[in-house]
């Protein structure tokens, strides 16, 4: 029982990342009908937003500290971050410590901007080209974005820690009446899951309960009729692309403490996210979220030692295996709509 709960918890954080990326992919596909291979790169750029912000707020200048001396007896030079000067030492430390959560505020405008520029500058011209061309041009874009990041940040992973308040682990077992220490789970992963749930809830609420969301949903169902009603649906779809980019970016920002960002992390997630989208059903938002969590949990169950003893290496291939089986038995995916990508 403990093992099962632990595996479900373990699956949730990876599942959250899959679900967030797949949600963004599906938003883009559902609104614009474009298969975006650069979506993983957006996830990666989001992660590097966190890196950038934590570098910016740790920017420092050197001052000579008379109270301390080095081994030669000269006054010691110390690096003082600018935030110390502005907010005092205690607040400054807290700001540096909370760099990753603060990056959320930084990443949202950046990612929406990148998304809008991408859509207006490139993707717009590919609506009427075949899907293969869309895949190829976004694949090329993904390579370019990835290489730009690699040029500026180097090829090595950059550790970006979570705030020190969240470094420990939470003992779930004690809470649920099991022995202490049976089910322990890092705080940050709980935060990540709750954050993902919040974002997903937010996106759904936005689509469901606002006028803007209603128009977007109408546009997803029948673009031409909405246009005939005199609504500028293109502008709304462009903004949706920005929002999808922001969702991917935020997933990346919050993932940095779990996995140090490197320039190819987006590509690693992209392949799996596509599998998630296809399993959930092309164009179905609930399907993408469901499949994301489902595959995350399935993957973590497959990594259990008991399973690995029977089927070695199954954790490496289980997601692909599930995808193949689902595609062959339920061609539209778990919750796919009729008539999407059927030709």
């Amino acid at each position: 029982m403990e093992a099962i709960i632990l595996q479900i918890l373990n699956g949730l954080d990876k599942g959250s990342a899959y679900a967030l990326i797949a949600l963004g992919l599906t938003l883009i596909f559902g609104t614009l009908g474009v298969v975006n291979f650069a979506h993983g790169a957006l996830f990666m750029i989001g992660a590097f937003c966190a890196v950038t912000l934590s570098r910016i707020i740790s920017l420092s200048h050197t001052v000579i500290d008379d109270t301390q001396t080095d081994f030669l007896g000269n006054p010691l030079k110390v690096e003082v971050p600018y935030v110390y000067d502005w907010f005092g030492q205690a607040t400054g430390d807290a700001i540096i410590d909370w760099a990753v959560p603060l990056s959320i505020l930084f990443a949202i405008p950046v990612m929406i901007g990148i998304g809008v520029i991408m859509e207006r500058g490139l993707i717009k011209h590919f609506y009427h080209r075949p899907h293969a061309d869309q895949i190829l041009v976004t694949f090329g874009l993904a390579i370019v974005l990835q290489e730009i990041i690699k040029y500026y940040y180097g090829a090595n992973p950059i550790p970006t820690p979570a705030p020190s308040a969240f470094t420990g682990s939470f003992d779930f077992g004690a809470l649920m009446g099991f022995d202490a220490g049976q089910i322990i789970y890092p705080y940050w992963r709980i935060i990540y899951f709750m954050f993902a749930a919040l974002i997903i809830g937010g996106v759904f609420a936005f689509l469901q309960f606002t006028t803007f969301g209603m128009v977007v949903r109408a546009g997803m169902a029948d673009r031409e009729t909405v246009q005939l009603l005199g609504i500028n649906i293109d502008r709304r779809f462009t903004l949706m692309f920005g929002i999808a980019a922001a969702v991917a970016g935020l997933a990346g920002v919050m993932y940095t403490p779990i996995n140090s960002p490197n320039y190819h992390m987006g590509m690693d997630f992209l392949v799996l996210s596509f599998v998630v989208v296809v399993v959930g059903g092309m164009g179905s938002l609930p399907g993408a979220v469901l499949a994301g969590f489902l595959l995350g949990i399935v993957e973590s169950f497959a990594s259990m030692r008991e399973v690995l003893d029977i089927l070695p290496g199954i954790n490496q291939i289980i997601i692909y295996l599930v995808a193949i089986i689902i595609l062959l038995t339920r061609p539209r995916g778990l919750m796919g709509r009729k008539g999407v990508m059927e030709d």
Partner: peptide, 24 residues
Amino acid sequence: RSGIYFSILTLAFAMMSYSLAYSV
């Protein structure tokens, strides 16, 4: 399957082969 589904299926098979060759 055709279209994007075909691309994803072949991708999934190739990644499976890669993982198998790498580990199992």
